[in-house]
Amino acid sequence: MAAGGDHGSPDSYRSPLASRYASPEMCFVFSDRYKFRTWRQLWLWLAEAEQTLGLPITDEQIQEMKSNLENIDFKMAAEEEKRLRHDVMAHVHTFGHCCPKAAGIIHLGATSCYVGDNTDLIILRNALDLLLPKLARVISRLADFAKERASLPTLGFTHFQPAQLTTVGKRCCLWIQDLCMDLQNLKRVRDDLRFRGVKGTTGTQASFLQLFEGDDHKVEQLDKMVTEKAGFKRAFIITGQTYTRKVDIEVLSVLASLGASVHKICTDIRLLANLKEMEEPFEKQQIGSSAMPYKRNPMRSERCCSLARHLMTLVMDPLQTASVQWFERTLDDSANRRICLAEAFLTADTILNTLQNISEGLVVYPKVIERRIRQELPFMATENIIMAMVKAGGSRQDCHEKIRVLSQQAASVVKQEGGDNDLIERIQVDAYFSPIHSQLDHLLDPSSFTGRASQQVQRFLEEEVYPLLKPYESVMKVKAELCL
């Protein structure tokens, strides 16, 4: 049975990233139509530049190519590739079939990587351009969430054990800070992308030097003109047959890092959902379990974690691919890159769409948070109580021993009897502590235990987050809708 299948058929496997999760716009960027249309555009740009620099290419040939950029006979191309065992030459023939007058000058002087690699770089750039505003929107939604809850005390956790208090907004800023680093890295790697350009079979530009009869300047002009037509500021000066596969490492490393950030955020949300302090959106008709109707599973956060793990592992592909590119190139890269580049971007696209949807509907339960604080705060307040007693004339050592005994009794009630923490009640009825009984409410005010959390939130948002989001103001209103 021949390899390949009808990918629109229910009898043929289709990647869930495309069929179930990723956005239509990201799927289109990695589609065959987008790819092969870009090949034709690159052939047109090459012909236009070659004509401008004096090669015998007519206006009629150029116009014929322009008129057929979208006229792609995919069936013919597939048949040609089956016959020739070469995808680029299959599309040269297919393009030439609908451009008979231009057929002889299509791909003039070029090698397969002229269309293959340059198209990949265009796709990487455009895919990054799709991700950047999506990530900015996630940051914006979380920034709104953090600002609104900047002063809401909550129990902090280290080692997932109760620690000092923080605020809900401050905790959210930990998430935002990681995503801001990801946004900066995505922008950097996007701006650092260079075009492969017009380089020939081993990167020496020998074929173009021959076409222009040894004119170095025209060869350099050709490279520059096509690079500018493709919208790049610069091209690699040095290439082998391909652009260095280190570029793929750079791009997928940034995406993998984004995956790590999203995994951490969504894990926190899942843990908070278990504590009943916070939940992701839950639709009115949504079913959490087929057997347990009360369940409210954090399905979206779980999906993000599941896909983020996949995204983090994909960076190993370009690392290994770059390491086995012998001399000017081997074909070890080809099949692998067809999979890992598309999957990385479709996965990143999915987790950003999902995280935006989550961040637009996060639900906080202040009463649950308050109750958990009441359970733990008495123990945390013991040092403040000791200091207040010393100020009232008591002995630190005597007070410490009193607190120690009462704390152990209260802990026994919590752990052995399943009761509430009654340390404060014990202190309130103990005559030894009568000098500070009137101060206990103040000493137990949760806001006095959150330090500068709310001020940190305000400063972080104003100095770091809002300036970073400013270039994306025009796209901030787009909502994230999930079908599944």
Rank of each mutant, 00 (worst) to 15 (best):
A90V: 10
K147H: 10
E481Q: 15
K101F: 08
C113F: 00
Q161D: 00
Q439H: 08
H93F: 09
F160D: 04
Q320Y: 12
K134G: 14
M312W: 05
F449E: 05
E228V: 09
H437K: 12
R309Y: 04
R329Y: 01
Q210K: 15
D120C: 07
Q356R: 06
D398W: 08
F36C: 15
E25D: 14
A273T: 14
R404Q: 09
I249Y: 08
S301D: 08
R374T: 07
T166K: 05
L469Q: 04
R426N: 09
R234I: 10
A49L: 01
L183F: 08
L130P: 00
G259V: 01
D73S: 10
C266L: 13
I287D: 02
I424M: 15
I369V: 12
R372A: 06
L314Q: 13
I176M: 15
L124K: 13
G214N: 13
A18R: 08
T202S: 14
L121C: 13
L331K: 04
T201H: 01
M76K: 14
P366F: 02
Q210E: 15
E481T: 15
S395F: 07
H97I: 15
D430L: 07
V219Y: 02
D422L: 07
G361W: 07
I62A: 05
H263F: 00
R245M: 02
R338Y: 02
P133E: 10
T158D: 00
A388Q: 06
P153C: 13
Q51H: 08
V413Y: 13
S19Q: 14
S290E: 02
A256D: 05
A256G: 12
F160Q: 00
L314H: 11
W43P: 00
V414A: 04
H437I: 12
D422R: 06
A110D: 10
E417G: 12
E64F: 07
I106Q: 05
E60A: 11
D87F: 00
G288E: 03
K199V: 04
H263R: 04
S434E: 13
D216N: 14
L155I: 05
P100Q: 11
I249L: 10
R40G: 00
V168W: 06
D120H: 09
V363R: 07
V324N: 11
L42C: 12
I385T: 06
K246I: 01
T382I: 09
P16R: 12
H437E: 07
I57G: 03
V368Y: 06
T167V: 02
V405E: 12
G109S: 04
I123K: 06
P471W: 15
P24T: 14
G394L: 08
I176P: 01
I72A: 08
L179N: 02
L352Q: 07
K415D: 05
D59G: 11
R426C: 04
